[in-house]
Design a protein around this nucleic acid. Structure first.
Length: 199
DNA sequence: CACAGGATCGTT
DNA sequence: ACGATCCTGTGT
């Protein structure tokens, strides 16, 4: 199976987000199935890190699609994003939850030998499980971080994004968090509802 | 140089 | 509900 090509990411972040649920991300011996993501769009999204303009930290967001944007959150957690849209368009998809596919022993060692969904339900846990840090920011998604396409189209659930109370109400409430329906490997599952674009 | 504020997590 | 923990961005 070959990695998703840059053209996959060269679309609106919300479309890319929907197509990333069920895909797999790998780094080293660890491979995870993506179960939950969030889209940070542009322009006009007041939750987006790009809202304050280009800085040294968020510069990869302005780069070519199909690259990683990794940043340190609260001084503790490394959050993994994928850059979307054409070059110069700072929109991304944040990975929020996953389930293990390979490298479970290493994941458990990195995550304190936990088991079950608490192992990987949360964006900080993804970065920790994959062994990421800010040196991975700006690297292309054909290595060392690699993303593989999903096989089947899954049922999705949607809801507002998490932890963005600073954003304007319209952006706070936008259902731009996308998750795998009926999966236990999802953060804040009670805040998700059926995907309105189905049926 | 000083300060305030995080796209979180785990415990209380 | 709260503290950890530190980098980033801004202002002086």
């Amino acid at each position: 199976m070959s990695p998703l090509p840059p053209a996959f990411y060269d679309r609106d972040a919300l479309e890319v987000a929907r197509d990333l649920v069920g895909a797999e991300v790998a780094h080293g011996d660890v491979r995870l199935r993506i179960t939950e993501v969030e889209a940070y769009r542009y322009p006009g999204d007041t939750a987006n890190h790009a809202r304050m303009g280009r800085t040294k930290r968020n510069a990869p967001m302005w780069g070519a699609p199909g690259h990683a944007y990794v940043y340190l959150c609260y001084g503790l957690h490394h959050l993994l994003n994928f850059v979307t849209g054409p070059e110069g368009h700072p929109a991304v998809v944040l990975l929020r939850a996953a389930e293990p596919v390979a490298g479970l022993e290493l994941v458990r060692a990195r995550r304190g030998n936990l088991s079950g969904p608490t192992l990987l339900t949360g964006p900080g846990k993804i970065g920790q499980a994959l062994g990421l840090d800010t040196t991975h920011s700006g690297t292309p998604l054909d290595g060392p971080i690699v993303v593989y396409p999903r096989i089947e189209t899954p049922r999705l659930v949607v809801g507002p994004r998490v932890g963005i109370d600073y954003a304007e109400p319209g952006d706070r409430d936008a259902p731009w968090r996308i998750a795998l329906a009926e999966s236990r490997w999802v953060s804040h599952p009670n805040r998700l509802r059926a995907d309105p674009s189905i049926g």
